[in-house]
Write a protein that binds this DNA or RNA. Structure first.
Length: 346
DNA sequence: GAACCGTGGGC
DNA sequence: TGCCCAAGGTT
């Protein structure tokens, strides 16, 4: 039903009249479009906005980001999640600077090879920045075309992406960038997961699911996540200068390279901890605080203990003053603990 | 192909 | 509260 010439025209008309949800990204700079698309991965527009503005203010160009210190760049991502995105983005930007003279390539094959650039980001950046005809299939587009075609394809399967990319390309107009944005905008504001506003849909008459009354059961998604739960002790070790003991997480895996207060297995005793940290500790109270933190694929239950020491930090550990806090990037779970500590201890 | 990788918001 | 979803990519 959507395979008629009026479909893309109506969608584009709606998009041009609609108050766009991202006026903060009014730019032709491929670097800025690329950054915003990376930030928007699995992240809502309202969350991205302030991060984007601060990031661009500090790293306004390819050159500035390529030359920047990795740790400072990570700090600008603190709280945004999926931190490998920013490492990959900076790596990709550095490739652009060294391999393409600092100009984001307008060749989709070349752009796709850059670190952190997948099929979606390739399509979004190439179409929005250079108006090249590539599909940009995200969760919105899955949903919109599942409904337009009353398509029961399981969007959890990895073959679904190409299936929907093919559909998009059958109706791709000359205005490729606007069309891709319009599809996503429609999915985000009208063709929503729950309670879609079909009465306001500019392409309602093209929608097979609306005609059949199956909108509520599209798209089909099979995958369900079972989260595992983990319990740890977090050690808030304070020295005589009111400094806090911190350590850096491993370079790979969950929250890689971020800083934290020492985190140990729940059954580790005081003697084990003192040996591990190579210092003598005085435990202030039985339990200082508890924090639960839910990730997408696992849960943390953190029991926080407060210790005093007069010893120096050893090995991988170091003491951090409060003034130095901004020099380190912490995951949200650790910032919760830090904020509680500051509130309690004054 | 499927697990892994963060966080915030809606209901 | 628990679950789903969000302009996905890498391994």
């Amino acid at each position: 039903m959507y395979k008629s010439e009026t479909f893309s025209d109506r969608l584009l008309d709606w998009f041009h009249k609609y108050k766009r949800s991202m006026p903060w990204r009014e730019t032709d700079d491929p670097y800025k479009i690329w950054l915003s698309e990376v930030m928007l991965q699995q992240t809502q527009v309202v969350t991205v906005k302030s991060y984007y503005n601060k990031f661009i203010e500090r790293f306004p160009t390819i050159d500035s980001l390529a030359a920047a210190d990795d740790d400072e760049v990570l700090k600008y991502w603190e709280g945004l999640g999926y931190y490998s995105r920013v490492r990959n983005f900076q790596a990709g930007v550095r490739e652009v600077q060294s391999e393409y003279g600092g100009v984001v390539p307008s060749d989709g094959e070349a752009f796709l090879k850059l670190k952190g650039v997948g099929p979606y980001t390739r399509g979004a950046v190439m179409s929005i920045a250079y108006n090249l005809k590539y599909p940009a299939v995200d969760g919105n587009v899955y949903r919109v075309f599942s409904r337009l075609d009353d398509d029961a394809t399981d969007i959890a399967k990895s073959t679904a992406r190409k299936h929907f990319e093919d559909k998009v390309m059958t109706v791709m107009p000359e205005a490729a960038g606007d069309f891709n944005e319009a599809l996503m905008e429609l999915g985000a504001t009208v063709c929503t997961p729950k309670n879609p506003i079909c009465m306001l849909c500019p392409v309602q008459e093209h929608c097979e699911a609306f005609a059949k009354g199956t909108v509520a059961v599209r798209p089909i998604k099979s995958k369900k996540i079972n989260r595992k739960s983990y319990r740890y002790k977090v050690l808030l070790v304070v020295n005589s200068n009111e400094e806090l003991l911190i350590a850096q997480r491993p370079k790979k895996g969950l929250l890689s390279g971020m800083w934290q207060f020492p985190m140990v297995d729940e059954d580790l005793g005081l003697a084990d901890i003192e040996e591990m940290l190579q210092m003598n500790l005085h435990q202030e109270e039985e339990l200082f605080h508890t924090v639960t933190h839910k990730f997408t694929h696992l849960d943390w239950h953190l029991d926080v203990y407060l210790y005093r020491t007069i010893d120096n930090a050893a090995g991988e550990y170091r003491f951090m003053t409060r003034a130095e806090k901004d020099n380190y990037t912490f995951p949200v779970s650790m910032n919760k603990i830090y904020d509680y500590y500051v509130e309690r201890e004054g």
